[in-house]
Design a protein around this nucleic acid. Structure first.
Lengths: 233, 233
DNA sequence: TCAAAAGTGTTCACCTTACACCCATGC
DNA sequence: GCATGGGTGTAAGGTGAACACTTTTGA
């Protein structure tokens, strides 16, 4: 029986991460220049180490690039076409991550030649990384319609108009602000603070933060009014 | 740069499939006895071959066990905890499949010592295969509430009461038959045939089949009245 | 004739959607 | 005082959920 193991081919196992951020205007993806052709933008990636789980490895790689820990990280899909990496056969497990863009340590950009790109205006990407990003966006849309994960992309304190802009960026559409705020507030996931955001508008907007008790517990469909995203995978 | 590849550890890459079937009464999973401890039931699995994609490999393995091709097959999740397989470090990409149980060639059971088990009454499983089944059931519930994939588990021609029993088995609950049939028929995904199913009930029930044009195109939420499944992954 | 499953409509409550005006403030 | 974005309510249509009786037919 041990023979069955020894006769098998081993493969290199990589991890690649689609890192989403929101800068108040648009949905962004963090890309780096690395690897064989440092001319080509690619997702941040790395190799699985012998004593790591897949998720540990994805976290480590994310930390190396962003300096962040404890961020939203979800396995997206395993990509394993025989020729996806022309150098060596490599299976890559893609993860996607949602980070608070303000927490990101931009100093790390220099080390890794990293840059934020609008999700709707990406450069050509290495290997099948373009497919990975496409799938990640679909999954984000699918998921954000059902679960309150959008908050992961905003600072701790945010306004309803900010939240609306985020959802509009994710779905590349516009929502009615009256319906939007009613719907969001009806979930009672948010706590209204006594503070207002100043500087962006003359009047200022109330800040809210996530009511973390309820945040963890919610498993029901969250926003039903999202335009049916292309559902797949 | 090539060094970066050569310094890396390779890993064994396995595929394991959760194969769902429906026998008219309950939701079933196909398990086999294999491997080191032939005492333990496990999912059907195999190794990735050098010239195959992950999906090709999962299809091949499914064909070996069931004799079926062109069945619903979807990647579930990559499992890679360092100690999940005590013999050698192995990363397993799990797939789940929905098959028409009548098409399954039971003669193959002998070769592989295969047996159908009720999803709600499983024996202890090898390695982390229990986690794989749990996740597959969640995904099936999640997915079947949004997409018309349930039909994959039924014969070409089926009755509304059969379809209802299937959904009741998937969600382990009961539905009101008036609301159920209204909802299903309102999708206009089904074509009513002039035939009736005989033998099961005295009166007999009309047979339907999937209207395949619309089946492929539907991307909207499909059944909204499914009790909110535990949404995750 | 009776048992067992098939088939069929209506009402009510709630949710989604569409839509317009006043408010607060910095300049 | 005016321009900019923030904040709020209502009415109409549609959807989901609850609920009971009649039909068919083989035994």
């Amino acid at each position: 029986m041990l023979d069955q193991y020894q006769q098998q081919h081993p493969y290199l196992l990589a991890l690649d991460s689609i890192i989403f951020g929101f800068d108040g205007e648009g949905l962004k993806v963090l890309l780096v220049k690395r690897g064989i052709e440092a001319e080509t933008w690619s997702l941040m990636g790395g190799w699985l180490q012998p004593n790591e789980s897949l998720e540990d490895a994805a976290s480590r790689i994310l930390f190396d690039l962003t300096g962040l820990t404890n961020v939203y990280l979800e396995q997206l899909y395993a990509f394993g076409n025989p020729n996806r990496d022309p150098i060596t056969r490599t299976v890559s497990v893609a993860y996607f991550s949602l980070i608070k863009i303000d927490d990101y340590e931009a100093t790390l950009s220099d080390t890794f030649q990293a840059r934020w790109f609008s999700i709707y205006d990406l450069p050509p990407l290495l290997f099948d990384h373009g497919d990975m990003v496409d799938l990640a966006l679909k999954r984000l849309r699918y998921k954000a319609a059902q679960h309150p994960i959008g908050f992961e992309l905003l600072p701790e304190k945010f306004t309803i108009p900010q939240l609306q802009k985020l959802y509009e960026a994710i779905y590349n559409t516009e929502f009615d602000k009256r319906n939007f705020s009613r719907k969001i507030l009806s979930t009672s996931l948010l706590t209204k603070l006594d503070e207002k955001q100043k500087g962006y508008s003359r009047r200022g907007a109330y800040l809210y933060q996530v009511n973390s008790n309820k945040y963890q517990l919610t498993h029901n469909a969250f926003l039903n009014f999202i335009p049916s995203p292309e559902l797949s995978v």
